[in-house]
Amino acid sequence: MLNAREHNSESNALRVPVPIPAFRVVQPLPVGNRALKRTNASSAPKTDPEAPDWVMLIGRIRDHQDRAAFARVFEHFAPRVKAFLMKSGADATLAEECAQDVMTTLWRKAHMFDPSRASVATWIFTIARNRRIDMLRRQRRPEPEDLTWGPEAEPAQEDVLSLQQESEKLRQAITDLPETQKELIERAYFGDLSHSEIAAETGLPLGTIKSRIRLALDRLRHAMK
């Protein structure tokens, strides 16, 4: 299963078996591209050997304007974004239009995605959430300053891998929550709860993911100096 990595490692001679779960590479990557450094860690979750490597696909969109890679991401995420917007109160027509906007933004902002700080699903969620505020409330959404990787700096591979694994653990933890609690959290994120109704006590294992992000931020701050 690991031989799928051969397209994706910088040198076959240096290749060593990596104890991470199998993942699929959709298309071979050209050797010598900057993307190699950034994308050769698998983001594939342990629990689903069939899941595509979303991080790698976003890298291909960013570096090669790869429309096949975009189509894979679109097939999986666009209907989910549309469903998310419908759960938030949009009708099917408006949700379709906004989901298309969200996917267009994904293409245009692929260079902004930092896989050491967010999973692809998390990144798409933030784009969809901002579009929702725009669409349903007609308000501006103030966003924090971007912290972007400079031309030299690249996220550390171990940060990317750890963050993607922590994200999968979090997804599993939410799936395993008691139904009432899960519903409360979902309703909050669909925009269906008032601010005061949100309980901070969700029992979710956020501590690890927070320290991962913190570590990535520290490295980024260091790289920017």
Partner: peptide, 23 residues
């Protein structure tokens, strides 16, 4: 920022979760 991004990860998990495809 780290705390906020971990809450964003909850949103990402919900986008990937099983609560959405039923719509």
């Amino acid at each position: 920022r780290a705390q906020l991004e971990s809450f964003d990860a909850v949103g990402g998990a919900i986008l990937e979760g099983d609560g959405l495809p039923d719509v």
